[in-house]
């Protein structure tokens, strides 16, 4: 195996791989956060929304969880841009230039959102009803209740599911290779194809992904410990 191919500066491809890793992380972070926003909205809607909102959210989460991510990514990557531009057109605005990154984040976010919705809904349901009733009894507005009581109280229940979603987000970014987005997996394939050293580059990329997972696990462990403060230790 020729390790000089992985040198950080040309003719080594290490720099390209790291740039790819950076794009992957951008996608994962952006998509994950967007997913959380959708998830908070979705969970609130599923728990407290009217019947139509609930059913629509059910359709959304069911669809996303039943259709392969790869298919969703293809659909949303092209349709997302098209829809935004047609919307802009309807509103009489000039069409927008949507970067590949924004489209990628949108795609990952929509997929993550469905899972986040379920994780958060489960976590909110795990909060003792009395705590939320007490907040209402104090005359807190729904938004204040959400901010002061519901979100902090559900956190310990949500952390395992949410951290798992983060790990999935980092791996799902690889699927954007199929639409030609220059993230880690695609640049790896390009480097491998250009140099014909497939094993070297795929193993290197695998090591990078694994490093992301392992570092994430350490951080998740710390967060879990912190989130569980003051909770009865499970047997």
């Amino acid at each position: 195996m020729d390790l000089s191919l992985l040198a950080l500066s040309p003719p080594g491809w290490g720099g390209v791989l790291l740039a790819g890793l950076f794009s992957s992380l951008q996608l994962a972070v952006g998509g994950y956060l967007l997913g959380l926003v959708i998830g908070i909205g979705g969970a609130s809607g599923k728990l407290y929304g009217g019947p139509i909102v609930r059913d629509l959210l059910e359709v959304y989460t069911t669809l996303v969880r039943a259709i392969p991510e790869l298919v969703l990514i293809l659909l949303l990557y092209y349709a997302g841009t098209d829809l935004v531009n047609q919307l802009m057109h309807l509103l009489g605005l000039p069409s927008m230039d949507i970067s590949g990154l924004a489209a990628g984040i949108f795609v990952i976010g929509v997929v993550q959102g469905a899972y986040s919705t379920e994780v958060l809904r489960g976590a909110i349901k795990a909060i003792p009803a009395g705590e939320i009733e007490a907040a209402r009894a104090y005359g807190m507005s729904p938004l204040l209740t959400l901010r002061r009581v519901t979100l902090p109280a559900m956190l310990p229940y949500a952390v395992p599911g949410l951290s798992n979603l983060w790990l999935i987000a980092t791996k799902d970014t690889a699927l954007l290779a199929v639409v030609g987005f220059s993230e880690l997996t695609l640049v790896t394939r390009q480097a491998a194809g250009s140099t014909k050293h497939y094993m070297t580059f795929f193993l290197a990329a695998g090591a990078l992904y694994l490093a992301v997972t392992l570092v994430s696990n350490v951080i998740i462990g710390m967060i879990e410990k912190r989130a569980r403060r003051g909770m009865v230790r499970e047997a």
């Binding site: 952006g30 956060l33 967007l34 959380l36 926003v37 935004v84 927008m96 230039d97 949507i98 970067s99 990154l101 924004a102 984040i105 949108f106 976010g109």
Partner: peptide
């Protein structure tokens, strides 16, 4: 995150 999302789309 919401801001970043909007900003990057609006860029």
């Amino acid at each position: 995150a919401a801001l970043v999302g909007v900003a990057s789309v609006g860029a």
